[in-house]
């Protein structure tokens, strides 16, 4: 099994950290992983994105041009990546910032009000955990428990944020899980 994920958004939406957490969790599950950022001027204001590969086999090409799953946190990112998603793939759309429809019926689309959920839980900073929850509900890349334990490890210095981010992850997860049930 090989998951190729693109996570894209504005600089500052935490897309790089999201990808790192996913890769970190994949590594913890004994998978082969890679994380590749797009860097440069795009990091300052435009779209930022990273490509994460989680695979049973060693990762060859670390670039992803046809993702099996994608999280699009804003409109410009969606414009850039929606065509490339593999048939049968999963797309998490940030409904809080994206209004347009995606004209593809060959992929699973999940519109999640990511910002609203995070704000509702007290902080917009938690949008990345909402998004990751939604992604892992849509496609079983790594187990939710593993991702949360990796989060706890990565932010071990800030134990206070664990509970709220777990809640954010759960709401993102539920938002997709309940809809698909």
């Amino acid at each position: 099994m090989k998951h190729e994920v693109i996570i894209a958004g504005f600089g500052g939406q935490g897309v790089m950290v999201m990808g790192q957490l996913l890769a970190y969790a994949g590594m913890a599950e004994g998978k082969h992983v890679s994380w590749m950022p797009s860097y440069g001027p795009e990091m300052r204001g435009g779209t930022a994105n990273c490509a994460v590969i989680i695979s049973d086999e060693p990762v060859g090409d670390p670039l992803v041009s046809e993702p099996t799953a994608a999280i699009m946190m804003n409109s410009p990112s969606l414009d850039k990546f929606w065509r490339g998603i593999k048939t049968g793939g999963d797309l998490i759309l940030n409904g809080s910032l994206i209004e347009k429809e995606v004209g593809r019926n060959d992929i699973h689309r999940y519109r999640v009000p990511i910002n609203q959920i995070a704000v509702g839980l007290g902080s917009e900073k938690m949008i990345n955990m909402v998004a990751l929850g939604a992604l892992l509900a849509a496609v079983n890349i790594v187990s939710p428990e593993r991702l949360l334990s990796c989060f706890a490890k990565k932010f071990a210095a800030k134990p206070a944020i664990l509970a709220s981010n777990t809640a954010a992850f759960q709401q993102g997860y539920d938002c997709v899980a309940k809809r698909t049930l």
Partner: peptide, 10 residues
């Protein structure tokens, strides 16, 4: 190169 320098792997 820039890709190897910036990418993360275990």
């Amino acid at each position: 190169d820039g890709a190897l320098g910036q990418m993360m792997e275990p």
